[in-house]
């Protein structure tokens, strides 16, 4: 091989190497050594909160389906539909709030894909408004039991968690979630009570009027007359 061809190969090599460097990006930020002492949530407690995300989203999708059902032209209950669509978005916010709590406590650094597993509605049709409301109340009671479970486990995660009481999350679940659960359940029970009485003797008319009340609020009679 003559010196010229070696030189040429060298040039080609340097050129190829250079373009390679130019196209290469430094994409990954360095790993920083962050003290772990502050990460004090125990595993059984974390798992319970993570599982609750899917519970809230199943409720969200069930209310979404209720909203779609009562929107149908042949069902035509826009008040119920609006109530359930709003509830669906609220449930999605409950899930997001749980996620934010875990993040605040330094959790969810890996495998976040496991948190949300394609939540689906528990049903897609309901025979009438009162059945949907009763199902909603049962669903909320189920969600409440799951929340109480979180408080129980986080208060004493057992041996695996060295019997460590996580005061903050227990307090937070009670204040932020259980408070809203009990108030929401009371509201649903009251709605079922009123609607149940109205449809006892006046089935269709009762549901029609109740729907308009949901849609227009307390002044609904006035609104309908002046509309």
């Amino acid at each position: 091989m003559n010196p010229l061809s070696i030189f040429t190969i060298g040039i080609i090599f340097i050129f190829a190497f250079n373009t390679n460097v130019q196209g290469k990006l430094q994409c990954k930020a360095p790993i920083v050594d962050i003290p772990k002492d502050w990460l004090d949530m125990k595993d059984p407690c974390v798992k319970k909160v993570q599982a609750q995300v899917q519970e809230e989203l199943t409720a969200a999708m069930t209310y979404f389906a209720m909203g779609a059902h009562f929107s149908k032209d042949t069902i035509n209950r826009p008040g119920f539909a609006q109530f359930f669509f709003d509830s669906a978005t609220e449930e999605r916010e409950h899930a997001t709030k749980l996620i934010h709590y875990l993040l605040m406590r330094g959790q969810l650094t890996t495998e976040v894909g496991q948190l949300i597993r394609d939540p689906a509605p528990l049903a897609e049709i309901w025979p009438d408004g009162i059945t949907a409301l009763k199902n909603a109340l049962k669903l909320e009671a189920h969600v409440t039991r799951k929340l109480v479970d979180i408080a129980k486990i986080c208060e004493d995660p057992g041996q695996e968690g060295e019997h460590w009481n996580d005061y903050h999350i227990v307090d937070w679940i009670a204040n932020e979630y259980l408070d809203e659960q009990y108030k929401g359940q009371r509201q649903l029970a009251g709605m079922i009570s009123n609607l149940g009485k109205m449809i006892d003797t006046n089935g269709q008319l009762g549901e029609f009027l109740f729907d308009k009340k949901l849609l227009f609020g307390d002044d609904f009679v006035k609104d309908m007359v002046t509309a």
């Binding site: 920083v32 962050i34 989203l57 999708m61 979404f64 997001t96 996620i99 934010h100 993040l103 330094g106 959790q107 969810l108 650094t109 976040v112 894909g113 948190l115 949300i116 394609d118 939540p119």
Partner: peptide, 19 residues
């Protein structure tokens, strides 16, 4: 709905204390 969950999880990842 499915893409909404994916973006919610991307948001979750970038919200952890390491990222």
């Amino acid at each position: 709905i499915n893409k909404n969950w994916q973006f919610l999880l991307l948001h979750t990842h970038f919200s952890n204390y390491e990222a």
